[in-house]
Amino acid sequence: MRVDIDGISKSYTDPAGNPLHVVGGLTASIEQGEFVCIIGPSGCGKSTLLGMLGGLLPPDEGAIRFSGTRTATGEMTSIVWQDHALIPWRSIIDNVAFGLELRGMGRRERKEIAQSHLETMGIGAFANARPQQLSGGMRQRAGIARALASDPEVLLMDEPFAAVDAQTRTLLQEELLAVWERHRKTVVFITHGIEEALLLADRVLVLSGRPTHVVEDLRVPFPRPRTADIAQTPEFGELKQHLWERLRDATRAAEWAEVEGAGS
């Protein structure tokens, strides 16, 4: 499944009635099986972009094209949410099976599939626990298991590891890489972390401030399979510095635009 984002724009009207141009003519292509990380200044419209990719809101202009074999819109993408968005009154396994349940799959079959994804994420023992009984890291593992269980064409991840502590984040990153090596799903991964992006991605897209568009499309050269050790190499340091400079420029520009907006 190839994804072509073709000049999409999106505007909102803020509560005061002013138009807010969030996404401005963004164009990008994502190849089948590619792991793409997206970084950009805070509030630049990354989540809006993800919402459009996830079919939750239509673009005002342009189009997003999924070229492949499947047609059901509910099977194109699965989002892994920053706050995991698990249903509190369902057990973990019923949460993971939720997407399959929506498609009308029988109880036994969907539970089997859900259980196997729980095992993959290392939380098979917690199938019957409620989300609120689990730690933040385990909830996010369940969130990833749910997204994988729906077997989407594209996995969309919205800063999935931002809310967990640093040690757990490192573990989750390595687990995600290990799972991805096996499935090789197309992944669009939004993050604040430059190092996280370099560790995970085949390509890093740097976005500008609002109205956001791609200002840098960087191919990450590190061979796979990768571990966190690549962060020690000089090449990693150089790329990190380079990305930080691009991000800093974009963030500064976004901040200035914000202040000018406030002044007018």
Partner: peptide, 10 residues
């Protein structure tokens, strides 16, 4: 968050 999650899954 839950309604968005459900809509995304079809």
């Amino acid at each position: 968050r839950l309604t968005q999650m459900a809509r995304n899954l079809g």
